[in-house]
Structure formats: structure tokens, C-alpha cells
Design a protein around this nucleic acid. Structure first.
Lengths: 155, 155
DNA sequence: TTGTGTGGTTGCATCATAAAACCAAATGGC
DNA sequence: GCCATTTGGTTTTATGATGCAACCACACAA
């Protein structure tokens, strides 16, 4: 077994995420989809990637429930790729990646865009992690715990 | 040029992040480093990855300023790998990946751990994105804008 | 029906990854 | 100090993933 290792059965939630979107292109495809791209050719020309790779990635994203194919939108007979709720749920991941670049990139002047609040047009704050009671948490204020056994009766 | 495409010169901050940590293993190495692992052998046995790949990844992470090698800590003559501030800055990315799994994974019961507030031992809230004035923002409330020309005189 | 654009698949070359073997320096036991 | 073992890698070899170009089927327009 010389295959690329799969994280599928892994119990770590980070590994499980990476299994679905941890490759070179998936997050960039999702980014473009959040921007509103839907068609194969749009992704291909915007990202400049090989068509076979794009094809494989789109298929994988559909299999993982991140994208869905819908029959049309402008009346043509072609299909389009739209984000599912699971796909739109990656938004905080993309924001975190963006903010990490903004904060630590060696050449931040090369970053062309900023994320702004649509209403005011002003830059957004950094992502905040809070405790249940609202206290702002840094990494040192957190720890991981074994997940408690699930309650019966909650289904 | 049939090489794997590099995002190095890309102006998109997400692509720039992925250039540094967008491969299969880097984020998992960083995760273990946040847990406190420091030695080559610790990473290798915990992650179960091939030693040559680990060697290459550690070198790359050091080159990107995410890890740094320090001479020792227990007096031995070996070196250790510790996170830089840039490396610790990836914490929100890992949290976002974790929460995405928790929210959307098909088999959430297989996720073994939860992230808790160290002080109270209670689960943390979901990451929050806020506007400058504190309003909570969803993806639809945001947009990307061209970065304004940098102010002279602010350095 | 002929032409053109869209949306892919196939083949081939190259790169990255995986596993195992190998190796040198550091360490530990005596 | 001497030898065995551990640590921390590098090298070798096999295979999977990626990139590019060519090809192709279908939709659509004239």
C-alpha cells in the first residue's frame, strides 16, 4: 500500500476536514464558488488549472457534499456547480486563511484584496473565539477534551 | 514546466496561505506542535508518516518561518522544532477546520475530541466574524474590495 | 448540416509521496 | 573507553497525483 494516506477513518476533526478539502485546489474552487462562479469553464479560466484536475476536483467536492450539480440557470442544457450549505460552511476557514496571510505574510503588500463589511465597506475584525460565557479566548486558554458519550434520547 | 503549480506570486491571500500550509501534512504537524510536540521522533510516531516526508515538511515549515529549530531543551544534543509566532497564528485556521467537521461531518460520532475553554472546561463557541462596530457578520454580509494604496508615513 | 463553443476524457511525461533500507551521530550500559 | 541502541535523518525504489496537450461528444447557432 503505497497510496497517498487517507485520513478518512481518523478521529481527529482536523484530519477529517483535510480529507475533504485539504488538497491543493479544493479551497480555491470553493473560494471562486463563494464569489458566484458556477460553470466549469468559469472555474477553469479563472483558476488557470488543467481541465482534468478540475474535473476530478469538482467530482470529489460533489461526492463530499460540498458542491451540488444543478441542471441549469440560464436555460442552457449544461449543468452548473453550486455550493451546498456544507460548502458555504467553509467560509470561516477561508477567512482564517486570509487573515493569517494578512497578519504574517512576508510580502503583505502583494495581497490585492481586503475583506470588508458589505454594509459599511470597512475592513472586518479578526475572527474571535469565545467561551460559552463570552470571554475572548486565545490558544493558550483552550484545550481539547475527549468527547463525552452522546446522550441517548436526543435523536 | 510540468511542475505542481505554485501560488507564490499569487495576489490572493488564501492562495498564499495554501502555498505554505496547503499540503496534506503541514497542518497536522502544526496541530501536534500546538499540542506540545517538539522532536522529530515524536511527530513521526504520533502522525505515523514516512520519515522522509516528515523531514521534507519540517524543512519547508522552517523555511516558511512557521517552525524554528532550537538547539535543545532537555540537555541533549539534538534539536527541536518549535512554533514561531507565525506558526501559532495558524490556530484560528485549525479551529475553523475543526468546527467545520463538527458542523457538517457525515459521521460526527467518530470525532473523538472537543475544544473546550480551559478555565471552565466547557465547549467553546463557534468562531465569530464581526464588523468594526461589532455587528456579527455572515458570508453574505461581506465582500472583498481592492486593497487601498498603502499610506505613506505609516512606517 | 455544418460550424463552433462548452464540458469534459484520455495519454503521456513529470512530480510528489510512501515504504523500506541504509547510515551517521548521539546516547546509554558496562 | 567500548559496544549496542536510539535518534534523526537520507537514499532508493515503486506508485499515485498532477500538468499539459490532444481528442471527443454534445449542445447550440446559422
Amino acid at each position: 500500500m503505497v497510496k497517498r494516506t487517507s485520513f478518512e477513518g481518523d478521529s481527529c476533526p482536523i484530519a477529517r476536514s483535510l480529507e475533504a478539502i485539504g488538497d491543493w485546489w479544493s479551497l480555491l474552487i470553493i473560494r471562486e464558488a463563494l464569489f458566484g462562479l458556477r460553470r466549469f469553464g468559469e472555474f477553469q479560466s479563472k483558476l488557470g488549472m488543467a481541465k482534468n484536475i478540475l474535473s476530478a476536483r469538482l467530482r470529489s467536492l460533489v461526492e463530499h457534499g460540498i458542491l451540488a450539480t444543478v441542471p441549469a440557470s440560464d436555460g442552457s442544457a449544461y449543468q452548473e456547480y453550486v455550493l451546498t450549505p456544507k460548502g458555504r460552511g467553509t467560509f470561516p476557514i477561508l477567512v482564517a486563511l486570509r487573515q493569517w496571510s494578512e497578519a504574517f505574510d512576508d510580502r503583505p503588500e502583494e495581497i490585492a484584496t481586503i475583506l470588508v463589511d458589505r454594509e459599511k465597506g470597512r475592513p472586518v475584525r479578526k475572527l474571535e473565539l469565545r467561551a460559552e460565557d463570552g470571554r475572548l479566548l486565545s490558544q493558550a486558554d483552550t484545550m481539547v477534551k475527549r468527547r463525552p458519550a452522546p446522550r441517548r434520547r436526543s435523536a
